[in-house]
Amino acid sequence: MSGKLKITLTTNLTLVEQFQSTLSSRTSARQPTPTTTDEQTKDLDPLALLSASATALKSHVTKLSLLTLTSPFTASAVATTLSTLNQSVLPSLVTAALLVTPESHTAAFQSEIRILTSTALKELFLLVKEVQVVAEEKASKKGLDQSEKDTVTLAAGRVWEACDTLIDVATKGVVGFVVRRAEEYRALVRDAVEEIEAWDPDEEGDEFFDDLLDGDAGEDKAGDDSEDDEADEEGSAALHERKKDALRILKPIAQIYPAIITNRLKKAPVPLSPSATKVLETLMKNLRQIPEHIDEVAGALYEDDLDKYTRQVGKTKVCASKAISLVTLPWTVEQSPGDQETEGDKFTTWSKTWLKVVGEVSKSIDESLNSQAN
């Protein structure tokens, strides 16, 4: 291996590891890479730069893999390609990722970008390690065998895939990211509600094994069995009523996802204002927590745990109400607590009706739960 190529390969591997460390650091949110300055980055569009850098990385990886696979191995050409990656492509990619901050793009989006960028760097590292192996062995070989070629091709393919994902997320931006996440949460809620709907409280337990355990008691337990049957009937009726109440409130809650996605998220202003970014941040938090609470509601139903059921239904309703309240007014209207009477749009009217209906259903459920507890 030539001295220049050896140095360039080592530099690339070291640089990639350093950049990965920088991206994983919690304190690097506002720190540009060492090769850039505030003056150079203050006017940059991070997502445009990220997309362009990922595209450039993909292009250079294509060139690097072809140079590695083509015989004879040209050390100078490989070194030149790696030098370009080291000096411009990788610094630009990482700089773009570091310019995505919670204040400008939400914490969730920042985390997604850092993870995807780190993935691209990890796959690049593995590819360059394969190139290093080829460079070290080229003196004793005229060409690569098929398995070696496949290894390099697969490594390059993983970098391309990581770059494509990064480009897609950067192109769609924060709004596209939030829409995708909201649709994922919607699917989770839909599945959980359908599972509760299909659940039959009467199928709980195993009567066959109960009969075996009680078999020795014979006729002496006839009176006890009668009392147990009566208690079981009352418990079953209570569970059926609780399931019915759960669905009465969970089904309207499930409706907020398509309504918010269509009427607010897909109409969010681009670029986002600081206030809109904060709204999206809090909105995502509540939309994410709803399926988590509904899973707990289902668990409480299956376990016949009234206290847990009551708490989780309440938490689910609170998160859904907060989510709706956050986006009741259109983005063009300043959303502040003092402007509740501000004229909005059709979704504003729908939101107020939804809040009223859910409030009434919740009150009815509380009354039902109180009667069951007593």
Rank of each mutant, 00 (worst) to 15 (best):
D216M: 04
I256M: 10
P269A: 09
P271I: 02
L49P: 02
D191K: 01
D225E: 15
V178W: 02
I294E: 06
L126K: 14
A77M: 01
A97F: 06
T310D: 03
V313R: 02
K278M: 05
A246E: 01
E341K: 09
A107M: 11
E334K: 13
G215Y: 15
A135L: 03
T27I: 04
Q146S: 07
A198N: 02
A54V: 01
L121Q: 04
P274K: 09
D214P: 02
T119G: 06
R288E: 12
F209H: 08
V279M: 08
I7S: 14
E17S: 06
P269M: 09
V178M: 07
T342C: 01
D345I: 00
Q87K: 15
L121M: 07
S2W: 09
T353Q: 13
R264N: 09
T41C: 10
I256E: 05
R26V: 01
L121W: 06
P34D: 12
Y185S: 02
L98C: 10
D224W: 11
H60L: 13
T353S: 11
S368G: 13
A120Q: 11
E203W: 02
A29Q: 13
T328Q: 11
A156N: 10
S364D: 04
D305P: 00
T95Q: 15
L326C: 03
L287W: 09
A29Y: 06
G338R: 14
V94S: 03
A222E: 15
K4R: 12
D216T: 04
L283V: 10
T55L: 05
L213F: 15
Q340M: 07
F177I: 00
L126R: 14
T62A: 06
R158S: 13
E112D: 07
A155R: 14
D345K: 03
T332F: 06
V175K: 11
I365C: 07
L250N: 05
L355R: 02
L369I: 13
S236T: 03
S275K: 10
L15C: 02
E281W: 07
L369K: 01
N370D: 07
E194Q: 12
K63V: 11
V297N: 05
F177T: 04
S71T: 14
A373Y: 06
D224A: 13
E343T: 05
L9F: 12
K363Q: 08
K317R: 10
D45V: 00
S59L: 14
Q340H: 11
D216R: 05
D164L: 12
K138M: 07
Q18W: 05
T171M: 08
T70L: 11
K172Q: 13
S362Y: 11
I260M: 01
T262F: 08
T171E: 15
Q335D: 11
F209Q: 10
S59D: 15
I261K: 08
S236N: 08
T80P: 02
V178G: 00
S273W: 12
E136D: 15
D339R: 12
N263Q: 13
E184P: 02
V94L: 08
T165V: 00
T316H: 09
